[in-house]
Nucleic acid binder design. Structure first.
Lengths: 339, 339
DNA sequence: CTGAAAGCGCTTACAG
DNA sequence: CTGAAAGCGCTTACAG
């Protein structure tokens, strides 16, 4: 592939390389006639400035890194979509990394090599030891969705409150045998949700039975298996709270396969209010935020951090937005006890 | 942010910059003792080579561009996930672009600036005028999912056949009043599916009524509105074929809102066999490919093209894989005529 | 308003 | 096995 450089443009336009560069960066500083000639040469040669060379000297790449949970979880698909679009609209490219690609340490090493201007992370564990490395990298970072215990800049939801709202909703419907299905609790969102659930259950003096609680790896097989196990005990739960909608929808799949009716036989609910939860065939009760995309808000503030970088001191960014409960058909009055 | 360069490493290790570079690129060519010292210095300084500088001289970036349809369509979420992971595993970074970000011309301009090693495109229109520019860019390109009329390297499904299989399935169930809901027909997949549908209907001498066919912009509102319109005519269809599962699931949402039962009142089916289609609450009949991810196959071959680049002539990559029909509960015997 | 020159951080012949 | 030097394509003071 032949690379057209600014030197080639300069030759054709009959000027110096510096002038070509100026036309690109501060066109008002070059004489209109000359500018026109350069523009024509650029067009004629289909010249595109080499970003690598530019960022080498400019010390900025106009690129941000997004480290996201898997797109198989709709929550991350939605936020990734929004972030990439938002960044693009504001002149930034997004390099997307998924947690499945390797340890955060390896990913950070790569990111550092690319000299991105900023980092968005939605999938760091609550006590992930790599936190320090990110914080010390000198690259502006914002955590969204999942937080780290140390704090830092973050945009998240009040997940404790969210879980309390959801749990009270189920108690209000008369449920007492409530099960809890969750992914690993070393993740802030899942941990906080569990905490909120437990707190309300304790307040209400409703015991949380051990056989009703399952912490699992979030894949369809595990959900299938544990849902089955949950419902095949002597006294099965009348309601299931899932750590997020993705899990809830998978569990719902299992419940329906078993011939159970929702909510007649068992109620189910989740968190995040992903798009599918509102579908008529799903109608999953969920708690999330309406009209507030954490990813986009995080991107917006990341750009502020990047641009204010050399200026005055950095503001501290800590958003904990209020959740909303969306009651749908998947939760109903507790089935009359009759086991 | 302080940038540690290979010069700093050289100073600490007491050697030249070239040696540092050699340790990184061809460690076997430097004396073990010296190599060890350099490695220690790299570790001590937390040195990460600057990718921009490297690609400037190496004339390759180990980066591919993926231009994808929106992640709001699960098909694209699934393929993006796979591609990024596959590329990562093989030493390539992926820059993700979405068609919504601007014209393909603008996106190509950006991509050229980044000097990516290869391009994967899943969202080009059948007669998109930018095709030439991509083909002439000198950058290896593979089209997957949607094809361009000119061909080029592509990985796709036999969509005509897919539509024929699906249509015959509905005819076999006794349906004669079959509606067709599709996104724009300037997209190969949608165009070919429509073609296959029409061909089978003609063969079977079943007229395709004009009021049963709607071409729409694929957003929830449009689907909602047209589904409503479809079912509120004097003789509503007994089955609806949708151009893809995303549309079908949205239309299903509308049907259920209207109080219709699937498939008792109306059957519905789609294409792509996305993950959600298999969910017990959805059970959408669909035609797609099992165990064959076009995105991943495309990525695999793109890397072959990139690596064979300077070698012998390029092979022509043209995959048209066979579809499979997944019959689920959303299609059933045609309702007894009684309008 | 414009050009020559230095330099960003790297790799790769070229000598030795 | 190793270092000095040239060069990748750009931007940005510095003179004029």
């Amino acid at each position: 592939m032949i690379i057209v450089s600014s030197k080639d443009v300069a030759k054709l336009a009959g000027c110096s390389q510096s002038t070509v560069s100026r036309v690109l960066n501060r066109p008002e500083t070059v004489h209109p006639d000359k500018r026109e000639k350069v523009l024509q040469a650029i067009e004629a040669l289909q010249y595109k400035p080499n970003i690598a060379a530019r960022s080498l000297v400019a010390k900025r790449t106009n690129t941000i890194a997004l480290i996201s949970g898997t797109l198989r979880n709709d929550y991350f698909a939605e936020s990734t979509d929004r972030i990439v679009e938002y960044a693009s609209k504001h002149g930034y490219r997004t390099m997307v990394y998924f947690e499945s690609e390797g340890s955060l340490g390896d990913i950070l090493a790569q990111i550092k090599s690319y000299k991105v201007d900023g980092i968005l992370i939605s999938c760091m564990k609550l006590d992930d030891p790599h936190y320090e490395a990110f914080a010390a990298s000198g690259i502006p970072c914002i955590w969204f969705n999942r937080r780290h215990r140390r704090g830092g800049h973050y945009v998240s939801m009040d997940n404790v409150l969210a879980a309390k709202m959801l749990t009270r909703h189920l108690l209000d419907l008369g449920h007492r045998r409530i099960a809890y299905l969750s992914g690993p609790l070393d993740i802030s969102t899942l941990y906080e949700r569990w905490t909120g659930f437990e707190a309300v259950m304790r307040e209400a003096s409703v015991p949380v039975r051990e056989s009703y609680v399952h912490i699992l790896e979030p894949n369809d097989q595990a959900v299938q298996k544990l849902t089955w196990k949950l419902m095949h005990q002597p006294e099965p739960p009348t309601a299931i709270v899932c750590g997020n909608d993705e899990l809830a929808i998978a569990s719902m799949d299992a419940l329906l396969s078993m011939g159970l009716r929702i909510p007649a036989d068992v109620s189910i609910a989740g968190f995040d209010d992903i798009r599918m939860s509102g579908h008529q065939a799903i109608q999953l009760t969920s708690v999330g935020q309406h009209r507030f995309d954490m990813g986009e808000v995080a991107a917006e503030h990341l750009m502020m951090l990047i641009e204010a970088k050399d200026g005055q001191e950095q503001p501290s960014i800590q958003f904990l937005c209020k959740p909303e409960l969306f009651v749908r058909r998947s939760t109903g009055v507790a089935r009359t006890e009759k086991n």
